[in-house]
Write a protein that binds this DNA or RNA. Structure first.
Length: 484
RNA sequence: GGUGGAGUGGCCGAGAGGCGAGGCAACGGACUGCACAUCCGUGCAUGCGUGUUCGCAUCCCGUCUCCACCUCCA
Protein backbone atom coordinates (compact mmCIF):
# COMPACT_ATOMS: atom_id res chain seq x y z
CA UNK A 1 0.00 0.00 0.00
CA UNK A 2 1.32 3.41 -0.89
CA UNK A 3 1.86 6.02 1.77
CA UNK A 4 -1.22 8.23 2.00
CA UNK A 5 -0.69 11.52 0.22
CA UNK A 6 -1.26 13.46 3.40
CA UNK A 7 1.82 12.18 5.16
CA UNK A 8 4.20 14.94 4.25
CA UNK A 9 7.84 15.30 4.90
CA UNK A 10 9.11 18.32 6.72
CA UNK A 11 12.56 19.63 7.19
CA UNK A 12 12.46 21.51 10.47
CA UNK A 13 15.23 20.90 12.94
CA UNK A 14 14.20 17.68 14.57
CA UNK A 15 13.95 17.76 18.32
CA UNK A 16 11.84 14.74 18.99
CA UNK A 17 11.87 13.80 22.65
CA UNK A 18 11.08 10.25 23.61
CA UNK A 19 10.51 8.69 27.00
CA UNK A 20 12.75 5.69 27.45
CA UNK A 21 11.28 3.21 29.86
CA UNK A 22 14.64 1.67 30.67
CA UNK A 23 16.23 4.86 31.98
CA UNK A 24 12.92 6.46 32.97
CA UNK A 25 14.02 9.58 31.20
CA UNK A 26 12.65 11.63 28.36
CA UNK A 27 15.59 12.03 26.04
CA UNK A 28 16.22 13.65 22.72
CA UNK A 29 15.79 11.08 20.02
CA UNK A 30 19.06 10.39 18.23
CA UNK A 31 18.88 7.52 15.76
CA UNK A 32 21.69 5.10 15.02
CA UNK A 33 21.74 6.20 11.38
CA UNK A 34 20.97 9.89 10.80
CA UNK A 35 17.72 10.38 8.96
CA UNK A 36 16.59 6.80 9.46
CA UNK A 37 14.61 5.16 12.20
CA UNK A 38 14.36 1.47 12.93
CA UNK A 39 11.53 0.29 15.12
CA UNK A 40 10.67 -3.16 16.36
CA UNK A 41 7.51 -3.79 18.30
CA UNK A 42 6.36 -7.12 19.52
CA UNK A 43 3.38 -8.15 17.55
CA UNK A 44 0.87 -10.62 18.73
CA UNK A 45 0.71 -14.24 19.54
CA UNK A 46 -1.96 -15.18 17.08
CA UNK A 47 -4.06 -17.39 19.27
CA UNK A 48 -7.30 -15.41 19.42
CA UNK A 49 -9.08 -12.42 17.92
CA UNK A 50 -7.58 -9.05 18.82
CA UNK A 51 -9.33 -6.82 21.36
CA UNK A 52 -9.04 -3.07 21.87
CA UNK A 53 -6.01 -3.44 24.10
CA UNK A 54 -4.06 -5.28 21.44
CA UNK A 55 -4.99 -2.83 18.78
CA UNK A 56 -4.06 0.17 20.90
CA UNK A 57 -0.45 -0.88 20.58
CA UNK A 58 -0.79 -1.04 16.80
CA UNK A 59 -2.33 2.42 16.75
CA UNK A 60 0.34 3.88 19.06
CA UNK A 61 3.16 2.63 16.88
CA UNK A 62 1.34 3.67 13.74
CA UNK A 63 1.15 7.23 15.07
CA UNK A 64 4.83 7.10 16.06
CA UNK A 65 5.68 5.93 12.58
CA UNK A 66 3.57 8.61 10.91
CA UNK A 67 5.04 11.32 13.09
CA UNK A 68 8.63 10.29 12.40
CA UNK A 69 7.83 10.06 8.70
CA UNK A 70 6.27 13.52 8.81
CA UNK A 71 9.41 14.72 10.58
CA UNK A 72 11.49 13.69 7.60
CA UNK A 73 12.79 10.31 8.71
CA UNK A 74 12.81 7.18 6.65
CA UNK A 75 11.12 4.70 8.92
CA UNK A 76 11.62 0.96 8.97
CA UNK A 77 9.16 -0.72 11.27
CA UNK A 78 9.06 -4.41 12.00
CA UNK A 79 6.38 -6.18 14.01
CA UNK A 80 6.60 -9.90 14.50
CA UNK A 81 3.92 -12.52 14.51
CA UNK A 82 4.36 -15.25 17.05
CA UNK A 83 2.75 -18.11 15.24
CA UNK A 84 3.78 -20.93 17.51
CA UNK A 85 3.51 -21.26 21.27
CA UNK A 86 1.91 -23.38 23.98
CA UNK A 87 -1.47 -21.75 23.69
CA UNK A 88 -1.69 -22.03 19.95
CA UNK A 89 -0.88 -25.71 20.20
CA UNK A 90 -3.35 -26.26 23.00
CA UNK A 91 -6.17 -24.39 21.31
CA UNK A 92 -5.64 -26.03 17.98
CA UNK A 93 -5.72 -29.43 19.68
CA UNK A 94 -8.97 -28.46 21.42
CA UNK A 95 -10.54 -27.28 18.22
CA UNK A 96 -9.21 -30.10 16.12
CA UNK A 97 -7.51 -27.87 13.58
CA UNK A 98 -3.91 -27.67 12.49
CA UNK A 99 -1.94 -25.29 14.68
CA UNK A 100 -0.62 -23.35 11.70
CA UNK A 101 -4.13 -22.96 10.31
CA UNK A 102 -5.33 -21.56 13.61
CA UNK A 103 -2.40 -19.16 13.80
CA UNK A 104 -2.93 -18.07 10.23
CA UNK A 105 -6.62 -17.44 10.78
CA UNK A 106 -5.92 -15.08 13.67
CA UNK A 107 -3.07 -13.46 11.82
CA UNK A 108 -5.54 -12.52 9.11
CA UNK A 109 -7.94 -11.22 11.75
CA UNK A 110 -5.20 -9.09 13.19
CA UNK A 111 -4.50 -7.60 9.79
CA UNK A 112 -8.15 -6.87 9.28
CA UNK A 113 -8.35 -5.19 12.67
CA UNK A 114 -5.45 -2.86 12.20
CA UNK A 115 -6.50 -1.99 8.70
CA UNK A 116 -9.99 -1.22 9.97
CA UNK A 117 -8.43 1.28 12.34
CA UNK A 118 -6.33 2.95 9.70
CA UNK A 119 -2.95 1.47 10.63
CA UNK A 120 -0.42 1.22 7.85
CA UNK A 121 1.09 -2.23 7.54
CA UNK A 122 4.58 -2.49 9.02
CA UNK A 123 7.55 -2.50 6.68
CA UNK A 124 7.76 -6.18 7.44
CA UNK A 125 5.94 -8.64 9.62
CA UNK A 126 8.12 -11.70 10.14
CA UNK A 127 6.72 -14.94 11.51
CA UNK A 128 8.55 -16.79 14.22
CA UNK A 129 8.39 -20.12 12.40
CA UNK A 130 10.17 -18.61 9.42
CA UNK A 131 13.29 -17.84 11.44
CA UNK A 132 14.36 -21.12 13.01
CA UNK A 133 17.89 -21.03 11.51
CA UNK A 134 18.49 -17.55 12.91
CA UNK A 135 17.34 -18.74 16.31
CA UNK A 136 19.60 -21.78 16.26
CA UNK A 137 22.48 -19.53 15.34
CA UNK A 138 21.76 -17.19 18.23
CA UNK A 139 21.39 -20.02 20.74
CA UNK A 140 24.64 -21.56 19.57
CA UNK A 141 26.39 -18.27 20.09
CA UNK A 142 24.93 -17.90 23.57
CA UNK A 143 26.05 -21.40 24.51
CA UNK A 144 29.54 -20.70 23.19
CA UNK A 145 29.72 -17.52 25.21
CA UNK A 146 28.68 -19.32 28.36
CA UNK A 147 25.31 -17.68 28.78
CA UNK A 148 23.11 -20.60 27.84
CA UNK A 149 23.12 -24.30 28.46
CA UNK A 150 21.40 -27.44 27.30
CA UNK A 151 19.34 -28.91 30.10
CA UNK A 152 20.95 -31.89 31.72
CA UNK A 153 17.70 -33.78 32.04
CA UNK A 154 17.78 -34.83 28.40
CA UNK A 155 14.65 -32.85 27.56
CA UNK A 156 16.32 -30.97 24.75
CA UNK A 157 15.47 -27.66 26.46
CA UNK A 158 17.99 -24.86 26.25
CA UNK A 159 18.00 -22.21 28.97
CA UNK A 160 19.48 -18.80 29.37
CA UNK A 161 21.76 -18.73 32.38
CA UNK A 162 20.54 -15.72 34.32
CA UNK A 163 23.36 -15.91 36.84
CA UNK A 164 25.91 -15.58 34.07
CA UNK A 165 24.57 -12.15 33.18
CA UNK A 166 24.88 -9.60 35.98
CA UNK A 167 22.90 -7.04 34.01
CA UNK A 168 19.80 -9.20 34.12
CA UNK A 169 16.93 -7.12 35.55
CA UNK A 170 18.23 -3.84 34.19
CA UNK A 171 15.19 -3.04 32.07
CA UNK A 172 12.58 -3.68 34.71
CA UNK A 173 14.70 -2.42 37.59
CA UNK A 174 14.50 -5.67 39.47
CA UNK A 175 17.13 -7.81 41.10
CA UNK A 176 16.98 -11.50 40.54
CA UNK A 177 17.22 -12.08 44.28
CA UNK A 178 14.09 -9.98 44.90
CA UNK A 179 11.95 -11.63 42.32
CA UNK A 180 9.13 -13.70 43.61
CA UNK A 181 10.02 -17.34 43.37
CA UNK A 182 8.24 -19.01 40.54
CA UNK A 183 6.04 -21.33 42.56
CA UNK A 184 4.23 -23.41 40.06
CA UNK A 185 6.62 -23.23 37.17
CA UNK A 186 8.15 -26.51 36.24
CA UNK A 187 11.87 -26.33 36.99
CA UNK A 188 12.59 -29.10 34.45
CA UNK A 189 16.29 -28.97 33.88
CA UNK A 190 16.91 -25.39 35.06
CA UNK A 191 19.99 -24.49 37.04
CA UNK A 192 18.17 -21.50 38.52
CA UNK A 193 14.43 -21.03 38.69
CA UNK A 194 14.82 -17.65 36.99
CA UNK A 195 16.45 -19.13 33.93
CA UNK A 196 14.17 -18.96 30.95
CA UNK A 197 13.77 -21.21 27.95
CA UNK A 198 15.44 -20.28 24.69
CA UNK A 199 14.39 -23.51 23.13
CA UNK A 200 11.81 -26.05 24.17
CA UNK A 201 12.64 -29.68 23.55
CA UNK A 202 9.90 -31.88 22.22
CA UNK A 203 9.07 -34.04 25.19
CA UNK A 204 5.36 -34.29 24.60
CA UNK A 205 4.89 -36.79 21.84
CA UNK A 206 1.25 -35.79 21.46
CA UNK A 207 2.37 -32.49 19.97
CA UNK A 208 2.21 -32.55 16.19
CA UNK A 209 5.38 -33.41 14.33
CA UNK A 210 4.95 -30.25 12.25
CA UNK A 211 5.40 -28.15 15.39
CA UNK A 212 9.03 -29.03 15.95
CA UNK A 213 12.34 -28.59 14.18
CA UNK A 214 15.68 -30.31 14.22
CA UNK A 215 18.50 -28.68 16.12
CA UNK A 216 21.88 -29.72 17.49
CA UNK A 217 20.00 -30.39 20.78
CA UNK A 218 17.28 -32.52 19.30
CA UNK A 219 13.83 -31.68 18.06
CA UNK A 220 11.91 -28.85 19.56
CA UNK A 221 10.41 -25.43 19.10
CA UNK A 222 11.45 -21.89 19.93
CA UNK A 223 10.98 -20.12 23.22
CA UNK A 224 8.96 -16.96 22.96
CA UNK A 225 11.61 -14.47 24.05
CA UNK A 226 14.24 -15.71 21.68
CA UNK A 227 12.16 -15.18 18.57
CA UNK A 228 12.15 -11.45 18.88
CA UNK A 229 15.90 -11.22 19.39
CA UNK A 230 16.47 -13.32 16.29
CA UNK A 231 14.04 -11.38 14.13
CA UNK A 232 14.93 -7.88 15.23
CA UNK A 233 18.58 -8.71 14.66
CA UNK A 234 17.92 -10.05 11.21
CA UNK A 235 15.89 -7.13 9.95
CA UNK A 236 17.17 -4.19 11.95
CA UNK A 237 20.73 -5.16 12.81
CA UNK A 238 22.63 -5.51 16.06
CA UNK A 239 21.69 -2.03 17.18
CA UNK A 240 18.44 -0.30 16.35
CA UNK A 241 16.46 2.65 17.59
CA UNK A 242 13.19 1.88 19.25
CA UNK A 243 11.90 -1.31 20.76
CA UNK A 244 8.29 -1.23 21.77
CA UNK A 245 5.30 -3.08 22.99
CA UNK A 246 2.72 -3.11 25.73
CA UNK A 247 3.83 -2.37 29.25
CA UNK A 248 3.21 -5.94 30.30
CA UNK A 249 5.94 -7.07 27.96
CA UNK A 250 8.54 -5.18 29.91
CA UNK A 251 9.05 -8.14 32.15
CA UNK A 252 9.80 -10.84 31.42
CA UNK A 253 9.68 -10.65 27.66
CA UNK A 254 11.69 -7.53 26.95
CA UNK A 255 13.99 -8.13 29.89
CA UNK A 256 14.82 -11.53 28.46
CA UNK A 257 15.25 -10.20 24.96
CA UNK A 258 17.64 -7.59 26.25
CA UNK A 259 19.62 -10.18 28.18
CA UNK A 260 19.86 -12.59 25.24
CA UNK A 261 20.80 -9.95 22.74
CA UNK A 262 23.35 -8.11 24.82
CA UNK A 263 24.82 -11.39 26.07
CA UNK A 264 25.27 -12.28 22.41
CA UNK A 265 27.32 -9.12 22.03
CA UNK A 266 24.75 -6.85 20.47
CA UNK A 267 24.12 -3.29 21.63
CA UNK A 268 20.40 -3.81 20.92
CA UNK A 269 17.70 -1.12 21.29
CA UNK A 270 18.46 2.51 22.08
CA UNK A 271 15.01 3.42 23.38
CA UNK A 272 12.36 1.29 25.00
CA UNK A 273 8.83 2.45 24.48
CA UNK A 274 5.89 0.91 26.28
CA UNK A 275 2.26 1.80 25.90
CA UNK A 276 -0.27 1.55 28.73
CA UNK A 277 -3.41 -0.51 28.79
CA UNK A 278 -6.95 -0.22 27.82
CA UNK A 279 -8.87 -0.96 30.98
CA UNK A 280 -12.41 -2.12 31.54
CA UNK A 281 -14.00 -1.21 34.86
CA UNK A 282 -10.56 -0.17 36.05
CA UNK A 283 -8.91 -3.44 35.24
CA UNK A 284 -6.55 -4.29 32.47
CA UNK A 285 -8.29 -5.73 29.47
CA UNK A 286 -6.93 -9.20 28.89
CA UNK A 287 -7.71 -12.51 27.41
CA UNK A 288 -7.40 -14.27 30.72
CA UNK A 289 -9.85 -11.95 32.48
CA UNK A 290 -12.26 -12.35 29.62
CA UNK A 291 -13.09 -8.63 29.66
CA UNK A 292 -11.74 -7.90 26.21
CA UNK A 293 -13.79 -5.89 23.77
CA UNK A 294 -13.14 -7.36 20.35
CA UNK A 295 -12.16 -4.92 17.65
CA UNK A 296 -14.70 -6.45 15.31
CA UNK A 297 -17.47 -5.83 17.84
CA UNK A 298 -16.49 -2.28 18.76
CA UNK A 299 -16.19 -1.19 15.15
CA UNK A 300 -19.71 -2.43 14.56
CA UNK A 301 -21.01 -0.12 17.27
CA UNK A 302 -18.90 2.93 16.51
CA UNK A 303 -17.33 4.30 13.34
CA UNK A 304 -13.79 2.87 13.08
CA UNK A 305 -12.34 6.36 12.74
CA UNK A 306 -13.98 7.31 16.03
CA UNK A 307 -12.51 4.22 17.65
CA UNK A 308 -9.09 5.26 16.43
CA UNK A 309 -9.69 8.79 17.69
CA UNK A 310 -10.61 7.36 21.07
CA UNK A 311 -7.34 5.42 21.14
CA UNK A 312 -5.19 8.28 19.86
CA UNK A 313 -6.45 11.19 21.95
CA UNK A 314 -5.07 10.20 25.37
CA UNK A 315 -1.33 9.95 25.90
CA UNK A 316 0.11 6.55 25.04
CA UNK A 317 1.56 6.11 28.51
CA UNK A 318 -1.79 6.68 30.21
CA UNK A 319 -4.24 3.89 30.53
CA UNK A 320 -7.61 4.47 28.95
CA UNK A 321 -10.88 3.25 30.23
CA UNK A 322 -13.13 1.44 27.84
CA UNK A 323 -16.76 2.47 28.18
CA UNK A 324 -19.69 3.31 26.02
CA UNK A 325 -19.58 6.93 27.16
CA UNK A 326 -15.93 7.25 26.16
CA UNK A 327 -16.56 5.80 22.73
CA UNK A 328 -19.72 7.81 22.23
CA UNK A 329 -17.92 10.97 23.26
CA UNK A 330 -15.08 10.27 20.87
CA UNK A 331 -17.66 9.83 18.13
CA UNK A 332 -19.27 13.20 18.89
CA UNK A 333 -15.93 14.98 19.22
CA UNK A 334 -14.71 13.69 15.90
CA UNK A 335 -18.03 14.66 14.33
CA UNK A 336 -17.38 18.24 15.36
CA UNK A 337 -14.10 18.21 13.46
CA UNK A 338 -15.65 16.48 10.46
CA UNK A 339 -18.53 18.92 10.42
CA UNK A 340 -16.10 21.81 10.10
CA UNK A 341 -14.24 20.00 7.35
CA UNK A 342 -17.51 19.44 5.49
CA UNK A 343 -18.65 23.01 5.72
CA UNK A 344 -15.22 24.33 4.84
CA UNK A 345 -15.02 22.05 1.83
CA UNK A 346 -18.33 23.44 0.57
CA UNK A 347 -16.75 26.86 0.62
CA UNK A 348 -13.19 26.31 -0.53
CA UNK A 349 -13.46 23.09 -2.52
CA UNK A 350 -10.72 20.50 -2.79
CA UNK A 351 -7.70 21.70 -0.88
CA UNK A 352 -4.63 19.67 -0.08
CA UNK A 353 -3.44 19.28 3.51
CA UNK A 354 -1.08 22.02 4.60
CA UNK A 355 2.62 21.48 3.98
CA UNK A 356 3.51 23.11 7.28
CA UNK A 357 1.89 22.00 10.50
CA UNK A 358 0.89 24.46 13.22
CA UNK A 359 3.75 25.02 15.64
CA UNK A 360 1.84 23.97 18.79
CA UNK A 361 0.96 20.70 17.12
CA UNK A 362 4.57 20.06 16.22
CA UNK A 363 5.73 20.96 19.72
CA UNK A 364 3.16 18.61 21.22
CA UNK A 365 4.09 15.68 19.02
CA UNK A 366 7.80 16.26 19.52
CA UNK A 367 7.24 16.06 23.25
CA UNK A 368 7.03 12.30 23.60
CA UNK A 369 4.13 12.01 21.19
CA UNK A 370 1.90 14.39 23.11
CA UNK A 371 -1.30 13.58 21.31
CA UNK A 372 -3.60 15.22 23.90
CA UNK A 373 -2.09 18.66 23.27
CA UNK A 374 -1.91 17.88 19.56
CA UNK A 375 -5.62 17.09 19.50
CA UNK A 376 -6.31 20.30 21.44
CA UNK A 377 -4.51 22.17 18.65
CA UNK A 378 -6.83 20.56 16.15
CA UNK A 379 -9.81 21.87 18.10
CA UNK A 380 -8.45 25.37 18.35
CA UNK A 381 -7.84 25.34 14.62
CA UNK A 382 -11.34 24.03 14.01
CA UNK A 383 -12.72 26.82 16.15
CA UNK A 384 -10.73 29.44 14.25
CA UNK A 385 -12.01 27.89 11.06
CA UNK A 386 -15.60 27.99 12.25
CA UNK A 387 -15.19 31.62 13.22
CA UNK A 388 -13.82 32.38 9.78
CA UNK A 389 -16.74 30.51 8.31
CA UNK A 390 -19.13 32.75 10.24
CA UNK A 391 -17.23 35.83 9.15
CA UNK A 392 -16.96 34.65 5.55
CA UNK A 393 -13.17 34.80 5.45
CA UNK A 394 -12.50 32.33 2.67
CA UNK A 395 -8.72 32.43 2.92
CA UNK A 396 -8.77 31.84 6.65
CA UNK A 397 -11.18 28.96 6.14
CA UNK A 398 -8.93 27.43 3.51
CA UNK A 399 -5.96 27.75 5.82
CA UNK A 400 -7.74 26.11 8.74
CA UNK A 401 -9.09 23.38 6.50
CA UNK A 402 -5.64 22.54 5.16
CA UNK A 403 -4.08 22.65 8.62
CA UNK A 404 -6.72 20.43 10.18
CA UNK A 405 -6.37 17.85 7.45
CA UNK A 406 -2.60 17.85 7.81
CA UNK A 407 -2.82 17.35 11.57
CA UNK A 408 -5.44 14.65 11.25
CA UNK A 409 -3.22 12.99 8.67
CA UNK A 410 -0.37 12.67 11.15
CA UNK A 411 -2.73 10.93 13.53
CA UNK A 412 -4.07 8.73 10.76
CA UNK A 413 -7.48 10.36 10.97
CA UNK A 414 -7.80 12.42 7.81
CA UNK A 415 -11.26 11.49 6.53
CA UNK A 416 -10.05 11.77 2.94
CA UNK A 417 -7.17 9.37 3.50
CA UNK A 418 -7.71 6.44 1.10
CA UNK A 419 -7.46 4.12 4.07
CA UNK A 420 -10.89 5.44 5.09
CA UNK A 421 -12.48 6.35 1.79
CA UNK A 422 -11.59 3.07 0.11
CA UNK A 423 -13.52 1.18 2.71
CA UNK A 424 -16.79 1.43 0.83
CA UNK A 425 -19.01 -0.90 2.73
CA UNK A 426 -21.66 -3.18 1.37
CA UNK A 427 -24.38 -1.26 -0.38
CA UNK A 428 -22.03 1.39 -1.69
CA UNK A 429 -23.47 0.81 -5.14
CA UNK A 430 -26.85 1.96 -3.86
CA UNK A 431 -25.53 5.42 -3.14
CA UNK A 432 -26.99 7.08 -6.25
CA UNK A 433 -30.37 5.62 -5.43
CA UNK A 434 -30.28 6.94 -1.88
CA UNK A 435 -29.05 10.31 -3.11
CA UNK A 436 -31.95 10.54 -5.50
CA UNK A 437 -34.56 9.51 -2.98
CA UNK A 438 -33.36 11.90 -0.31
CA UNK A 439 -33.16 14.70 -2.82
CA UNK A 440 -36.74 14.10 -3.95
CA UNK A 441 -37.95 14.27 -0.34
CA UNK A 442 -35.92 17.37 0.38
CA UNK A 443 -37.37 19.05 -2.70
CA UNK A 444 -40.85 18.36 -1.38
CA UNK A 445 -39.82 19.75 1.98
CA UNK A 446 -38.48 22.92 0.36
CA UNK A 447 -41.77 23.40 -1.43
CA UNK A 448 -43.64 23.00 1.85
CA UNK A 449 -41.34 25.50 3.51
CA UNK A 450 -41.85 27.93 0.66
CA UNK A 451 -45.59 27.91 1.27
CA UNK A 452 -44.91 28.07 5.03
CA UNK A 453 -46.43 24.65 5.63
CA UNK A 454 -43.98 23.90 8.43
CA UNK A 455 -45.94 20.94 9.74
CA UNK A 456 -45.45 19.13 6.44
CA UNK A 457 -41.82 20.23 6.21
CA UNK A 458 -41.05 19.01 9.71
CA UNK A 459 -42.83 15.73 9.09
CA UNK A 460 -40.50 15.03 6.20
CA UNK A 461 -37.47 15.98 8.27
CA UNK A 462 -38.66 13.75 11.11
CA UNK A 463 -39.20 10.73 8.93
CA UNK A 464 -35.76 11.17 7.40
CA UNK A 465 -34.35 11.59 10.87
CA UNK A 466 -35.94 8.36 11.97
CA UNK A 467 -33.96 6.65 9.23
CA UNK A 468 -30.75 8.25 10.44
CA UNK A 469 -30.65 11.00 7.85
CA UNK A 470 -29.84 14.35 9.44
CA UNK A 471 -31.13 17.42 7.64
CA UNK A 472 -29.61 20.83 8.21
CA UNK A 473 -30.81 24.09 6.63
CA UNK A 474 -28.03 26.36 5.52
CA UNK A 475 -27.98 29.62 3.57
CA UNK A 476 -26.99 27.48 0.57
CA UNK A 477 -30.02 25.25 1.00
CA UNK A 478 -30.59 22.04 2.93
CA UNK A 479 -27.72 19.65 3.56
CA UNK A 480 -28.07 16.09 4.67
CA UNK A 481 -25.86 13.42 6.10
CA UNK A 482 -26.23 9.91 7.38
CA UNK A 483 -25.38 9.38 11.01
CA UNK A 484 -23.49 6.28 12.03
C1' G B 1 8.07 -9.36 49.81
C1' G B 2 10.29 -6.65 45.26
C1' U B 3 9.44 -3.11 41.10
C1' G B 4 6.65 0.57 38.57
C1' G B 5 2.34 3.72 37.80
C1' A B 6 -2.22 6.53 39.09
C1' G B 7 -5.75 9.59 42.13
C1' U B 8 -7.79 16.68 38.56
C1' G B 9 -14.70 19.99 37.50
C1' G B 10 -21.17 16.34 36.22
C1' C B 11 -18.06 13.08 32.74
C1' C B 12 -13.55 12.16 29.61
C1' G B 13 -8.77 13.89 29.75
C1' A B 14 -3.90 17.33 29.68
C1' G B 15 -0.35 20.21 32.31
C1' A B 16 3.92 19.86 36.17
C1' G B 17 5.79 26.16 41.07
C1' G B 18 2.48 31.96 39.43
C1' C B 19 -1.50 33.62 34.22
C1' G B 20 -5.59 26.44 36.17
C1' A B 21 -5.37 22.69 27.77
C1' G B 22 -9.07 20.62 25.08
C1' G B 23 -13.50 17.87 24.45
C1' C B 24 -18.41 15.94 26.05
C1' A B 25 -22.69 17.22 28.92
C1' A B 26 -25.41 21.57 31.19
C1' C B 27 -27.19 26.63 31.34
C1' G B 28 -27.89 31.77 29.08
C1' G B 29 -27.58 34.62 24.45
C1' A B 30 -26.99 35.30 18.84
C1' C B 31 -28.52 33.09 14.17
C1' U B 32 -32.93 29.99 12.33
C1' G B 33 -40.06 29.56 10.73
C1' C B 34 -38.50 25.75 14.20
C1' A B 35 -34.60 22.37 14.74
C1' C B 36 -29.50 20.80 13.86
C1' A B 37 -24.87 22.89 13.31
C1' U B 38 -22.00 27.20 14.39
C1' C B 39 -20.59 31.55 17.16
C1' C B 40 -20.54 34.51 21.97
C1' G B 41 -20.84 33.81 27.22
C1' U B 42 -21.35 31.03 32.18
C1' G B 43 -19.53 27.12 35.16
C1' C B 44 -14.20 27.72 38.43
C1' A B 45 -11.88 20.96 39.83
C1' U B 46 -6.40 18.89 41.33
C1' G B 47 -7.51 11.89 47.39
C1' C B 48 -6.17 13.47 52.58
C1' G B 49 -2.67 15.92 56.24
C1' U B 50 1.76 18.61 57.55
C1' G B 51 5.74 21.36 55.42
C1' U B 52 8.83 24.46 51.74
C1' U B 53 7.62 29.07 49.11
C1' C B 54 5.61 35.77 48.33
C1' G B 55 2.78 31.92 45.57
C1' C B 56 1.93 24.74 44.61
C1' A B 57 -2.30 19.94 40.92
C1' U B 58 2.77 21.01 40.29
C1' C B 59 8.37 20.40 45.25
C1' C B 60 9.44 17.58 50.41
C1' C B 61 7.49 14.31 54.22
C1' G B 62 3.55 11.42 55.89
C1' U B 63 -1.09 8.97 54.86
C1' C B 64 -5.28 6.64 52.30
C1' U B 65 -7.15 4.34 47.91
C1' C B 66 -6.64 2.08 43.16
C1' C B 67 -3.94 -0.35 39.09
C1' A B 68 -0.01 -3.11 36.89
C1' C B 69 4.47 -6.43 36.58
C1' C B 70 7.53 -10.30 39.32
C1' U B 71 8.30 -16.05 33.88
C1' C B 72 0.39 -16.70 29.67
C1' C B 73 -0.55 -11.42 28.59
C1' A B 74 -0.48 -5.31 23.81
Amino acid sequence: MALPPDVHRYSWPVTFQLYDSMTHLTREFVPVVPGQVSIYHCGLTVQSAPHLGHIRKEVVFDVLRRWLTASGYTVKIVANVTDIDDKILRRSAEQGVEWYALAYRFELELHKAYQALGCLPPTYEPRATGHIPEMIELITLLIERGHAYVAEDGSGDVYFDVRSWPDYGRLSGQRVADMAPAEDSDPRGKRDPHDFALWKGRTDSSEPETASWNTPWGRGRPGWHLECSAMSGKYLGDEFDIHGGGLDLRFPHHENELAQSTAAGRPFARYWMHNAWVTAAGEKMSKSLGNGALVTEVTKQYPPRAVRFYLVAPHYRSSIEYSDTSLAEATTSLARIDSFLDRAHDLVGDTAPAAVLPAPFVAAMDDDLGTPAAVATIYTTVKAGNQALEAGGTEAVREAYAAVRAMLGVLGLDPLDPIWTDAAGPGADLEPVVDGLVKALLDQRQEARARKDYAAADAIRDSLGALGVQVEDTPQGPKWSVEH
